[in-house]
Design a protein around this nucleic acid. Structure first.
Lengths: 233, 233
DNA sequence: GCAAAAGTGTTGGGAGTACACCCATGC
DNA sequence: GCATGGGTGTACTCCCAACACTTTTGC
């Protein structure tokens, strides 16, 4: 090893995952219980292992808690203030993840005491995890307005009213269902199925699914496009 | 220290800064020469010191090379693939920075062999620094379309044609000057000065400067707003 | 007086928003 | 037959994009 490297201080490197799930009504984050006496909650976290990439480590952490693989995962931010972990200085790279809660809610690992919390009613969190969640919500809102990532939170088959409820939850508002429907369908990303949802409403809403081809191609544009050169001004 | 911490591998933590500068014609990044025999270029980087935050470290690195303080600085991404640094595993947190090149071009530290390169004509770069620059350009484009950060690259006094050239360079296109001018002025962020630029064109263009109050308030909205709940759909 | 860049106005199309009524079904 | 949620259409506004001529001044 070169001398230049030897002189440097190493740091512990952690990953923390903000895991979002939608239960049909509200948008939730998955937290785990920490400590014994006083109830403290924290994000699911873990340490970087020597042979894995940051993203692999973040995916492993989500898998350990939820049993889910191939979830949506995106790096959020690296947090490294001295003193953020009072015991030893630790750099944490936070990732946020979107999981299809409805499909897999039952699979939460029992080794961790985990609970879903509404993003609008969070407990006090460990260290700077509150900042992480706040930043993740901001990023999710921004991202969902530009890219079709909302679908990562829904089952493969979903109805337009379900999708609207999801966006209502993300943005904490109540979109106009006529405009919402028109705008979503104008993306041509959805395929209408002949099957109707049963049991929830009397009339029943048609199921839709993503058009896989168009979905792949639309990663960079959805509702509001990241402006192309020609359209910025 | 708790046993849980002791068992973990520590890693070296570096910071790399993508420093953008605008010379009046093109958008450039500042690179430093590496190695002796073969010419290799890299981003300006450094190691995290025990007492500083990630952002402080990134600011220090920009200062060491350019002598500039209080430049625009934003975290880009953490890069941590095993093998990205073949000598020893290093996690690098990349920041991008915008500097007012015209005001301070002469102050580059001579301790580092540094050169400005057009973002459209970059040399091969060390490690994954090419990925970092590519991501930084993408982020700059996105960010500049939504927030008034372009001004960080210009002197305090600038003309509308200068500003248009900057945006032309960022997006590698040629905006319509009538639409550009109207859109920029509609933000009400600029104050027209009575002074005209001399020497460049015969007619001379009026100088403008940022309205500091309005600029502060506009950090979250500029050309295209990050959609508010009511306007997304 | 001419070359070079600065500065400005109009118009058409598309997207967004607001808004209200009918439909299908289970009970 | 009625209550509940599903589904659709229209009109207005505003923003954006396209486009060309006049102005100023140094030479």
């Amino acid at each position: 090893m070169l001398a230049q490297y030897k002189e440097q201080h190493p740091y512990l490197l952690a990953l923390d995952s903000i895991i979002f799930g939608f239960d049909g009504e509200g948008l939730n984050v998955l937290l785990v219980e920490r400590g014994v006496g006083e109830k403290t909650w924290s994000l699911m976290g873990g340490w970087l292992q020597p042979q894995e990439s940051l993203e692999q480590a973040a995916a492993r952490i989500v898998f350990d808690l939820t049993g889910l693989k191939e979830v949506y995962l995106e790096q959020l931010h690296a947090f490294g203030n001295p003193g953020r972990d009072p015991i030893v200085r630790t750099i944490s790279v936070a990732y946020f993840s979107l999981v299809k809660l409805a499909d897999h809610a039952a699979k939460l690992s029992e080794a961790f005491k985990a609970r879903w919390f509404s993003i609008y009613n969070l407990p006090n969190l460990l260290f700077d995890h509150g900042d992480m969640v706040a930043l993740a919500i901001e990023r999710l809102r921004y991202k969902a307005s530009q890219h079709p990532i909302g679908f990562e939170l829904l089952p493969n088959k979903f109805t337009i009213p379900q999708l609207k409820k999801l966006y209502d939850a993300i943005y904490h508002t109540d979109f106009d269902k006529r405009n919402f429907s028109r705008k979503i369908l104008s993306t041509k990303l959805l395929i209408k199925l002949s099957e109707k949802q049963k049991g929830y409403s009397k009339k029943g809403a048609f199921y839709y699914q993503l058009d896989p081809d168009r979905y792949q191609k639309s990663v960079h544009s959805f509702l509001n496009v990241i402006p192309h050169a020609e359209t910025i001004m």
